[in-house]
Design a protein around this nucleic acid. Sequence first.
DNA 1: GCTCGACTTGGACTGAGTCCAATGCGGGCT
DNA 2: AGCCCGCATTGGACTCAGTCCAAGTCGAGC
Lengths: 138, 138
Amino acid sequence: MSDLLERLRGRGWRMTAQRRVVAEVLGGEHVHLTADEVHSRAVAKLPEISRATVYNTLGELVSLGEVLEVSTDKRAKRYDPNAHRPHHHLVCAQCGAIRDVHPSGNPLADLPDTERFGFTVSDVEVTYRGICPNCAAA
Amino acid sequence: MSDLLERLRGRGWRMTAQRRVVAEVLGGEHVHLTADEVHSRAVAKLPEISRATVYNTLGELVSLGEVLEVSTDKRAKRYDPNAHRPHHHLVCAQCGAIRDVHPSGNPLADLPDTERFGFTVSDVEVTYRGICPNCAAA
DNA sequence: GCTCGACTTGGACTGAGTCCAATGCGGGCT
DNA sequence: AGCCCGCATTGGACTCAGTCCAAGTCGAGC
């Protein structure tokens, strides 16, 4: 994910240890982390990093479009580093597990003009809900 | 919306002034209220009603399937009394306005088996985002 | 009209996130 | 290399939405 760092530098970001750490955490294997999870993983690499900085950095990454905010769960926002490949989410109603999915078809096209009420529609967010195999077995 | 009250009675609900008021508020013209908005409207009709009761009642209505919880906005859950006609939401990214929409086609069908990872998928939630005419004009 | 248990109350509590004034430090300039 | 400016970070207080709980209330079946 050092290409992410490159892109950020290119956008005039001042490169600080904290931002590097947050970017690294998002680049790791775990997807869909909450802000607090990002923070605690970041603390492991850079003990003095503060919660506020993690929130700031995540917010900036989101507004740059490098990271996606998903709120499948009602408790906390989650951050999805996989922002460059459009995808949707499949959530287990029981355990909260999240998977990325790629439906066929474009739901944007399913919204007829008569149902747009003059809005300029730019984005769709689709969340499928169900029971994951683990929870079904239990 | 007194048919709602009927249905609730039929399900063994004890009919209290508080529950009646909450049901009335949801039956009014306003849709997509937050819990706090429901509470303040309820207080107008029944000053002693407590926040806890409003939350309880909303929660019960949701689990009975009479009301839908929507979380388009990251701040607070909103409650949508229009639970009996399946629909999705169109949200203004600027002012937060919400409209109900009825897309053609069923997004559930767009999720191929290969993308279900063994989940039993039972529900989809679609949120369209864009700019409403008002905000576009401003 | 009594009684019992479901319902309500309100205040304390939690968890997620935001704000802000003081301080630190990246990096362009010389 | 060293300075300096201003962007970034810090941490602690604060807000906002929602949950919890023990005590008190009251709907409705008998």
